[in-house]
Design a protein around this nucleic acid. Structure first.
Length: 956
RNA sequence: GGUCCAGUGGCGGAAUUGGUAUACGCGCAACACUUAAAAUGUUGUGUCCGUAAGGUCGUGUGGGUUCGAGUCCCACCUGGACCACCA
């Protein structure tokens, strides 16, 4: 036998698999049950494959191989998300065409992927920059267009000055470009959008982007992320008249219950009312100046500004329809024009931002929500405290008394005040006080155990934390307070310090302290200062107030979303051209954009091919505009001279439907045939990074929903089960990055240890979804394990006497590995394989059967070595399409177990007993044990707890 | 600021979902093999006390529920991820 030489055997078997393509091939016509196991197709970057890719691809490869061995017809394809900015930017720098760099990168990726032994069905490879693919991306665009789901409009859009293109909202992070991190500016441009907002809620039989989340098996965190991104909020839209005019301002609020606390109104700088009322505004110059200032600010500036700014529109008052109050109107950039109506009612007593603004401009603060009645409660407990003190004096007892109002904090704000009383009594007088509190109908919940433990007494109105002291051991807090602490002054002081400590609300900011008592942000409560609505709960009030508005035609319920329509056009070259033709002549016929007639490219003329004769230098306009080859086009309607849309599509459009194409990648007539779509989709398992939680995953769901709604698909969620792989960090715990030079190149690892070691190591590092640091040293452990597996073949011999202990372990391992793969717990699967290998090593001889089982279990993880050892055993068939072993339930049962003997829950002994020992027998055995007898001595046994096959616990 | 997640040896991480905490691997130590080293193998490896047998404490901190808590509940501390002026 030779030494374990991964280099040699890995190349050998990769060649074998490449020659026997059917092994990986998904069978369109097979009757076996299908399973579609998908990786997010990679962007073929020049940097090559990353260990992070290897992690998720290994996971899906193990799963695919496992399913194949279980007789499933598995579709496990791979492809390339080949359009995108990096290749184009590289082209700008070097002049090398993106097509070339992309092609080269794809070759590298494929070489690296194949060197890992992944069992992809390459016959179904897709490449989004291939015209055979983007023909269908364009076709889908037209389908959207024809159904009113793609439209062009002038809008304020995110503009990245460095990338010289617009960006989707989703691609702007902290006001910066997701890609190059330069600050994003706002520009008014005419752009193409997809109506993703039409699919937030259910549409016919198609479930919406929100409700669809309920029926798919995705990580909870990802679902929540999508929900938050969609940002549904239910509120009220309210019309408010401008004093002495017929103009109205419409505002949106989720807290109409606080409407009586409105003390001013604010509009966004972009709000139309400013222009509309220009003549009436007395300080228009000042306003103009402010608007100019805010226009200069980027979104980032606006967000980072810690102090809110704004200017009053003098001469204009807005009327609160509920009480007729005329309120001042402000323009301030803390109000966003894109959300709601771009105008808000300001309730400084109950909204933090309004509060801040009101403080700065000295605007009135009116509280209209209370949370309980602290004043009445305070007086009640105050009188009770007096009563206790009096009683103590009468009976010559001494107590230490501390108390005050406590503040409950939620959302970082005060939501409720409650009464707290701490009483400490002398230890030897505790029985006396217990009796007293019982008489006062306090429930004593827990016996204080005659020590310094508090217990809670509760009479339904307030509770008392009750403890005792013996003159020495009292808490610091109580030491100096005796009962003098409990005064109205001390309560106020307590509240002040509490608020100071929180740093949230400072009483000095509020003129009237009783107001502070009642003030709270965010939370619901009871209405006060609200005329006939006083006493209602916030929830009741919202309903009544909205109903009143509806009756008077001043407002209605309104649902708002944060999600906007998806901006899909890009002023860049390396993407799929948008298949639209503009004709000036036809403009009258079909008013489109900028007075042009916009015509979809006829289906027979697809694809609109990306031309080669372009200058990549970004000018702010699409490079395609200057390609003669590209622009030389006739109007599909009148045949006259026309021009093409020169923008390309966001690469996320290409990746929103690629999974459908895998079912029928070579189809020239359709994006995929109905038959094949029905055969393979939806995707059964999708694995990829959590960074795609909103962008790609939301867009892909949107595409599926559109196609379902239009009758092309019979499912409305593309990915039934989704799992994320965690990021692999560099050894120092930081992110791997080229600039830091701490990137681990899979090629290096493969040449040193082999692909099997890398695969197994990445799976062994920890749970798939966890973020985990790379450990170069750790990989030798896996290599040693595989080396030992290699050497184990020396021990194969068919021993006559069956080794039942090993039998049990082998079958237990089959069970464990099977369950772990199903649940994608690959780390523990490998560890149980190691345990079995260690057990084999301890044996002088192992049976061929046991070893074969082991290899079958190992093969999805380390396919090369398994295949090699399998063939060395003389097997003709590749282990690749062997059957997955089944465990024998009879064999996994231990005959003898170690029963744990506990005394009061502490392990005191372990006794070897038969596995199905009964409680009676177990009792008998332990009562005879000397060790246990010593513990029990003459103590009374209260009871036994017996857990079959596990432990017995003696309670004394 | 909000939301979610996590905190277990020197390190990566296990723990049948409330039942022997630290599986498996790395590292470390001793020994064997060797002229020597590497490689490999064997043994040991949470803490404190003890020659030992054995015992003590022990899963971020403090409390609670339970015969029994890494696991459940409450409060706090620390770290991470995502979102963040969305009215």
């Amino acid at each position: 036998m030779d030494k374990y030489n991964p280099k040699e055997i890995e190349v050998k078997w990769q060649k074998f698999w490449a020659k026997n393509l059917d092994l990986c091939k998904a069978q369109d016509s097979s009757k076996q049950k299908k399973s579609f196991i998908l990786d997010m197709f990679p962007y073929p970057s020049g940097e090559g494959l990353h260990v992070g890719h290897v992690e998720s691809y290994t996971a899906t490869d193990i799963y695919s191989r496992y399913l194949r061995m279980n007789g499933k017809n598995v579709l496990h394809p791979q492809g390339f998300d080949a359009f995108g900015l990096p290749a184009e930017n590289y082209a700008i720098k070097t002049g090398i065409h993106p097509k070339k760099t992309t092609q080269k990168a794809i070759e590298t990726f494929k070489r690296q992927i194949n060197s890992m032994g992944f069992s992809y069905d390459w016959s179904r490879e897709v490449n989004s920059s291939d015209q055979k693919y983007y023909k269908w991306t364009q076709w889908l665009f037209l389908l959207f267009y024809k159904n009113g789901l793609a439209y062009k409009k002038k809008a304020k859009v995110n503009w990245c000055p460095k990338c010289q293109t617009v960006l989707a909202n989703e691609q702007v992070v902290d006001g910066k470009c997701e890609r190059c991190e330069s600050e994003v500016a706002q520009k008014d441009l005419e752009q193409w959008f997809f109506r993703i907002t039409d699919f937030i809620e259910d549409r016919g039989k198609t479930s919406g982007l929100l409700s669809g989340l309920e029926k798919i098996d995705w990580p909870q965190s990802t679902k929540i992320l999508q929900q938050n991104w969609i940002g549904k909020s239910e509120g009220t839209q309210l019309k408010m008249q401008i004093e002495d005019s017929n103009d109205f301002i419409e505002i949106y609020t989720t807290r109409i219950d606080t409407v009586f606390g409105m003390t001013y109104v604010v509009v966004a700088p972009e709000h139309e009312i400013i222009k509309k009322c220009e003549e009436r505004i007395k300080n228009y110059e000042e306003i103009k100046k402010y608007l100019a200032e805010t226009k200069k600010k980027t979104d980032l500036d606006r967000m980072e500004a810690k102090v809110k700014t704004g200017v009053e529109l003098k001469g204009i008052k807005v009327i609160n329809p509920f009480n007729g109050e005329a309120l001042p109107l402000y323009v301030a950039d803390y109000v966003l024009s894109q959300y709601g109506t771009g105008a808000v009612m300001a309730v400084p007593a109950h909204d933090e931002r309004d509060f801040e603004f009101a403080k700065k401009y000295k605007l009135p603060i009116k509280a209209v929500i209370a949370f309980d009645k602290p004043d009445s409660l305070t007086s009640e407990i105050f009188s009770f405290a007096k009563k206790i003190v009096k009683f103590a004096k009468e009976n010559n007892k001494k107590i230490i008394f501390d108390g005050g109002l406590g503040l409950d904090i939620a959302y970082g704000m005060i939501t409720r005040s409650h009464v707290d009383v701490d009483i400490q009594v002398k230890k030897n007088e505790i029985e006396f006080w217990k009796d007293y509190f019982k008489k006062e109908s306090f429930e004593i919940k827990k016996n204080p155990d005659e020590r310094f433990e508090l217990y809670v007494a509760d009479n339904g109105k307030f509770h008392i934390d009750f403890g005792c002291y013996d003159g020495e051991k009292i808490t610091n807090k109580l030491e100096n307070t005796e009962f003098s602490a409990f005064t109205p002054e001390s309560i106020l002081k307590f509240k002040k310090t509490e608020a100071d400590r929180l740093g949230k609300l400072r009483p000095k900011d509020v003129h009237d302290f009783s107001l502070f008592n009642l003030m709270a942000f965010v939370a619901d409560g009871f209405l006060i200062n609200s005329e006939k609505y006083d006493g209602l709960t916030s929830e009741q009030a919202r309903e009544k107030l909205t109903a009143w508005l509806e009756k008077n035609k001043l407002g209605q319920k309104k649902i708002n979303y944060k999600l906007r329509d998806w901006l899909v056009s890009r002023q860049r070259y390396w993407g799929a051209p948008i298949p639209i033709i503009y004709c000036e002549k036809c403009a009258r016929l079909r008013q489109g954009f900028d007075g042009q007639g916009a015509w979809p490219v006829p289906e027979k003329d697809l694809p609109v091919v990306l031309p080669d004769d372009v200058d990549f230098k970004p000018t702010g306009e699409s490079p395609l505009k200057y390609s003669k080859k590209f622009q030389n086009v006739k109007c599909p309607n009148c045949g006259g001279k026309a021009s093409r849309e020169s923008d390309t599509m966001d690469t996320f459009v290409c990746s929103s439907w690629y999974y459908l194409r895998y079912s029928d990648p070579k189809n020239k007539k359709e994006f995929a045939s109905e038959k094949n779509l029905e055969k393979w989709l939806p995707v059964d398992l999708y694995v990829g990074g959590a960074e795609h939680s909103v962008l790609h995953l939301l867009y892909a769901r949107f595409f599926t929903k559109v196609l379902h709604n239009l009758g092309y698909l019979n499912f409305d969620e593309p990915f039934l089960k989704l799992r994320h792989q965690g990021i692999i960090l560099a050894e120092d715990g930081t992110k791997m990055s080229k600039s830091k030079g701490n990137v681990v190149n899979p090629d290096d690892v493969v040449s040193q240890f082999g692909a099997d070691s890398l695969r197994c190591f990445e799976m062994f590092m920890g749970p798939l979804e966890d973020m985990k640091p790379w450990q170069t040293k750790g990989i030798v452990g896996i290599y040693r394990f595989l080396e030992r597996v290699w050497k184990l073949q020396n021990k194969i011999q068919n021993p006559n006497n069956q080794n039942t202990k090993l039998d049990t372990l082998v079958h237990k391992t089959i069970k464990k590995v099977t369950e772990d793969i199903e649940a994608m717990r690959f780390n523990t699967a490998i560890s149980s394989l190691m345990i079995l290998a260690n057990a084999f090593e301890k044996e002088e001889k192992i049976s061929l059967l046991h070893y074969s089982y082991f290899l079958l279990l190992l093969s999805p993880f380390a396919p090369h070595i398994s295949e090699e050892l399998w063939s060395q055993l003389g097997n003709k068939k590749a282990i690749f399409n062997e059957s997955w072993p089944k465990y024998d339930p009879k064999l996994i049962k231990d005959e003898e177990i170690e029963m744990v003997v506990q005394i009061n829950g502490k392990v005191r002994d372990k006794i070897k007993v038969s596995a199905d020992i009964s409680e009676v027998e177990a009792k008998k055995i332990i009562m005879e044990s000397e060790k246990i007898k010593n513990y029990i001595l003459d103590k009374k046994i209260k009871k036994f707890i017996f857990v079959k096959g596990r432990l017995i616990n003696v309670v004394i």
